[in-house]
């Protein structure tokens, strides 16, 4: 019971962090049709900016400033990069962000070095929030969840209730009409891209000290974020939310399952020895494959339901 509850909390908090990461990507993708390969790099930038700023003026100002800085970088990227390649089509945009991710990684190496940086959880958020049976649950994970949920609500309200949100939604489906109504559609796109990047930056500020701030962190989460967006459904924010939680649950609980085909066959009365064909495959437990399951899920999803969980259209 204790294990189940703790694992449930772990999977929700991990899922919510994934959602923070992927929400920006989903918004950008649904508005602009750009699958931003550099999204995880913005996450990394957020963590490094926060590390630098919190060293100067503390964690709380960094929590606000770092995402804004990342958003500014994102807007500059859209204005001077993406807009130029937009005319060559989506593949060119994808390639551009691919190259950009490569370059941001190298730039981080250049500025902050190859090792991890000591970006730590602030003392006020360090410690246990509550104790469940015998396991402590850290305040910081609760804080992560709170930020993530308020972000979801914030995005939802912005998109449905505010004026700019309505313009964004309209620009998505009918860009020409919105343009004739006097709105500057390229500017809207720039804001959307900047906003999406800022969300990734926020995830970086929070994820950077929960895990480790190091130059490989973008490459480590990059593919997972794509999985979330694809599984959730291209362009669906709620879908991304569900997919994040789903992947959080799958990854957390599969770790606990030490079952392999050997056990299954043993139940069926078949013994598997080291000389059985494909022994290595049958011997693999579910927990060993845990981190690979999201990719498997994505491939299966793309094969059988390319729209994703809640997607409205196919890629």
């Amino acid at each position: 019971m204790e294990f189940f509850l703790i694992s449930m909390l772990n999977s929700i908090s991990y899922g919510l962090l994934l959602f923070m990461l992927s929400s920006g990507l989903t918004i950008i993708f649904s508005m602009m049709g750009v699958l931003n390969f550099a999204h995880a790099s913005f996450y990394m930038l957020g963590a490094y900016f926060a590390y630098q700023i919190s060293g100067w003026i503390g964690f709380w100002p960094a929590l606000a400033i770092a995402p804004l800085l990342v958003g500014a970088v994102g807007m500059a990227v859209e204005r001077y990069g993406l807009r130029t390649v937009h005319k060559f089509g989506h593949v060119a945009e994808l390639l551009f962000t691919f190259g950009l991710a490569y370059l941001i990684d190298e730039a981080v190496h250049l500025i902050w070095g190859r090792s991890s940086v000591p970006y730590a959880v602030p003392p006020s958020l360090d410690g246990a929030a509550f104790t469940l049976f015998s396991t402590e649950y850290p305040i910081y994970r609760v804080f992560m969840m709170a930020v993530s949920i308020s972000m979801l609500i914030g995005i939802y309200l912005t998109l449905t209730r505010s004026r700019i949100g309505l313009v964004i939604q309209a620009a998505l489906t009918h860009p020409q009409t919105v343009e004739t109504l006097g709105h500057n559609v390229p500017r809207v796109f720039m804001l959307v891209f900047g906003g999406g990047s800022a969300l990734a930056g926020l995830a970086g500020v929070i994820g950077g000290n929960a895990f480790i701030t190091e130059p490989g962190m973008a490459a480590a989460v990059g593919p997972i974020v794509f999985v979330v967006v694809v599984v959730g459904g291209m362009g669906s924010l709620v879908g991304a939310f569900l997919a994040s939680l789903l992947i959080g649950v799958i990854q957390t609980f599969s770790v606990a399952l030490d079952y392999s085909f050997v056990n299954l066959f043993a139940k069926l009365g078949i013994t598997i020895g080291p000389n059985t064909p494909l022994a290595a495959l049958w011997d693999l437990t579910i927990s060993q494959t845990a981190p690979v399951l999201p990719y498997l899920l994505m491939v299966l999803m793309l094969i059988f339901r390319p729209k994703g969980i809640l997607g409205t259209r196919e890629g």
């Binding site: 294990f3 703790i6 999977s11 991990y14 396991t135 480590a220 989460v221 770790v255 606990a256």
Partner: peptide, 9 residues
């Protein structure tokens, strides 16, 4: 990325 499940185990 997240070792929390392993630690729970």
């Amino acid at each position: 990325k997240d070792f929390a499940p392993y630690v729970a185990k």
